Computed example of a mutant assay.
Amino acid sequence: MLDFPNAKINLGLYITEKRPDGFHNLQSCFYPVRWCDALEVVPAEKLQFGMTGLPVPGNPDSNLCLKAYNLLQQDYNLPPVHLHLHKVIPMGAGLGGGSSDASFTLRLLSQLFELNLPADTLESYARQLGSDCAFFVQNKPVIATERGDVFEQIDLNLSGYTCVVVYPGLHITTAEAYGSIKPQKATCDMPMLLKQDVEVWREVLKNDFEEALFPKYPELPQLKEKLYGSGAAYASMTGSGSAVYGIFKEAPAGLVFPAHYAVWQGLL
């Protein structure tokens, strides 16, 4: 079975408080985008995992796809499979690519072995793999709170808008990003604001990480201003960085970036 785990962007991101467990509570709107990896799962005589595409740092045995398989295997005694991941979504970009790979693994295994696991069960497994993994089970726009794993559905449809996502090759670790943050309450009523026209978001909808990271990495504010200069209705860094995206009413023309930047453009 073959599927295409997609990325997400954050429409606004507020770090509201530090939790007793060391994590942070947040508020954000998660919105799926069509920048995708490729993931294949087929039955095999022994468990195998292979990767192509972008190099993934770390031990392959600790990859989230394997962890997802092991979670379900423990509870459902799954037979071995061959997992193959072709990595396209950049890592350390705030796009949730690894989380998406994990959740799509759960979904594919449920289909392949006819487990017929409902969405809430899959989300429960996904939460054990990472804070935003559960989002990719249903893959619909949500207001995310707590660790990014408690969801409120939101009626938000940006279809017809073009999104340009630019990753400048800066791998910002989660520890570095959160180490610079001073938690505070959200400065806007996000559900109400997201009902307004996209152009209204510019002066109000914020990503808290920008204030901490833009002075350290001048490429990031430069990217944001370039997107606005090319006609973006709204532009922001996504997640804890370092990808920056712009949302356009019409597909922009003539946008050029350095050769080592990774760029995706497509309809939302």
Rank of each mutant, 00 (worst) to 15 (best):
L2C: 04
D3Y: 10
I9R: 01
I9G: 02
N10C: 11
T16K: 08
T16N: 12
G22Y: 07
F23I: 11
F23P: 10
H24G: 06
Q27N: 07
P32V: 02
D37W: 00
A38F: 07
V41Q: 00
V42W: 04
K46S: 11
F49A: 13
P57W: 06
N59L: 12
P60M: 13
P60F: 13
L64S: 06
C65I: 09
Y69K: 06
V81T: 07
H82D: 15
H86C: 13
I89Q: 09
L106C: 06
L108V: 06
L108A: 08
L115W: 08
P118T: 07
L122D: 02
L122W: 00
C133W: 04
F135L: 01
F135P: 00
E146I: 05
I154G: 01
I154Q: 03
V166H: 05
L170S: 05
T174M: 11
A175Y: 12
E176D: 15
E176R: 12
P183F: 13
Q184L: 14
T187D: 15
C188P: 11
L193E: 07
L193R: 06
Q196W: 14
V198H: 12
V198K: 06
W201H: 05
L213T: 00
Y217P: 00
K224W: 05
K224R: 13
E225V: 12
S230N: 14
S236H: 10
S236K: 01
I247D: 03
A251D: 03
G254F: 11
V256F: 09
P258E: 15
H260Q: 15
Y261E: 05
A262W: 00
Q265L: 04
L267T: 14
L268K: 07
